[in-house]
Amino acid sequence: MVNTKLSLCGIALDNPVIPASGTFGYGHEFAEYYDINILGSLSTKGATREARFGNPTPRIAECAAGMLNSVGLQNPGVDAVIAEELPRLARVFHKPVLANVCGFSVEEYAENAAKLDKQPQVGWLEINISCPNVHCGGMSFGTDPRLAAEVTRAVKVVTTKPVMMKLTPNVTDIVSVARACEDAGADGVALINTLMGMSIDLRSKRPVLANVTGGVSGPAVKPVALRMVYQVYEAVSIPILGMGGVQSAEDVLEFLLSGATAVEVGAANVADPFACKNIIETLPAAMARYGITDLKDIIGGAHHG
């Protein structure tokens, strides 16, 4: 028997597999296909103060071993998320969720976080300071350690729930941003959001994405993500939620060994609605294959010896 149970900031997880924000809607689409209560948790689609359509289409493109998206935080607004989406989600998912919070100002982050904090099904707040697809917000807070710290402090004031700061890889030194979040009181860091990229359509000779640039995700970014998790683990003592190209149980083990306490699965959900289910079902066998009996024991294991 192997043990897949873990604790993320004091909240128990049956397993470390969590669908990433923006790739799982609010869970209903997947609940039509399987019982999503097998998941460790799930991260909801990011909520902003106002409803957003997002960027013009096309806003999805393929690239080698992955994809680009420039969706741009389409969501019905935090009040509608609370009034409609979370209650619908509660009918099909009975575990604490990560509420993904977005904003265009420090005040907006705090305001949205305060509203989501009051929802009983919200276990953690995941603060997205790393969306590469919006202007005047999103990633601009995650590329400057001082601003990242400012958002962290503003959110911490309005919640008693664990605050996970979601970081961007589009920086020279992600470690300094992670440290700044920890020093400002963050309970954990989540990394990585997508890497900024683009794609050209040879027929039109123009960028494929109407937004020109988008975020790269999928297996193509996994080595970058693993490296960043490894570096951040050396520098902070708060838990890390690792993500970037996870599509198998083996990938989960690699992220835990690099220093993640749990992992998020993003692009894999877009290619296969059963991606998380398959990872969870194959995790015990993968653990046994590599002589792992308890996931807790391998967190950060790659740093020892």
Binding site: G25, G54, T57, P58, I60, N69, V71, V208, V270
Partner: peptide, 14 residues
Amino acid sequence: ARMGCGYGACMGCT
């Protein structure tokens, strides 16, 4: 539409 998932999860084709 240029789709991502095809089943309503990614909001790519809105």
